[in-house]
Amino acid sequence: MVQEKRRTASFLTTEFYLTIFLLAVLIFLGIFAKGFYTINNIMSILNAYSYTLIAAIGMNMIIITSNIDVSTGALVSVVCFASAALGKLGLPFPVLLPAAMIMGMILSTINGLFITKTRIPSIVATLATTQLFQGVLPLTTEGSIYDLPATFTWLAFEAKIFGIVPASVLMCLIITVIALFFMRYSRFSKKLYAIGNNQNSARLSGINVEKTIIITYAIAGALFGVSAIIIATAGQRVTTTMGSGLEMTLIASVILGGTSTAGGSGKVLGTVIGALILSIVSPAINYLGISPNWSDAIKGAIIIISVVVGAAQYVKKKRVIKVPAGGIS
């Protein structure tokens, strides 16, 4: 009973103080950033937020298993470009979306297989596949795909709910709700946390660790695919490097949301708030009249402060039962 209580309390704190921080920032912006709360700005932030969050939910799952994926940016570039090639043929969005999801799933499953079959630590394995993904695109094509038809840009240009909210936001909302329930109640998610906490005991308790990790990468890959199609359809031109560097934003969102890279902990809700905070930084400082040159420093400071504050709550508890700070994670 006591333990139960403590868990609830710690759950409250991580997401709770993030929410408080977010609210404070939003109020601050309302007072000092003139014009920040215009529909256009909110919607453009939400659109960028939606592709970040969708992919971050996938990354969150991977990190919970105490793995990581640094190839996401390169993977998204590949899916963006391949989707554009399909889009050039005039295929509509209902075809492009599953196509992108399948492509993302395939590429990410390669990562998963590589990690589980060779037992190479995920950070190194995905570092290697990053280079493959990055190199393969310019080989297959020269330059960019441009003058894409209206069927391709439909999502960004026309698909607005009530004529205002971009459809990407709705997609993000649906995925988030599913993820919230899935990660809380499904048996599969229990396995993820078990593997992240201790892979060996998870194995001993009868979980097929390898299969679970591969499936996790596949699901995450499908989410990266959704994210990629939102990024790709933003304009009528797609080049070979769209989405590059995305992985760092994703990992940062997940970490800011309180997920430990050691695995075994972390909630979707944290990632939801973490990604939102990071998505607001750049537009916010532009509206506040601060040079965009400071945006990265502010992001870095937010992450480090929040992580340190978050850790401070656990340090006491950890001293009692010291968990080995294993490996690099």
Partner: peptide, 13 residues
Amino acid sequence: TPALGAQYQSASK
């Protein structure tokens, strides 16, 4: 310039 065009086109309002 193309990004300006695209982002105008996708603006909600």
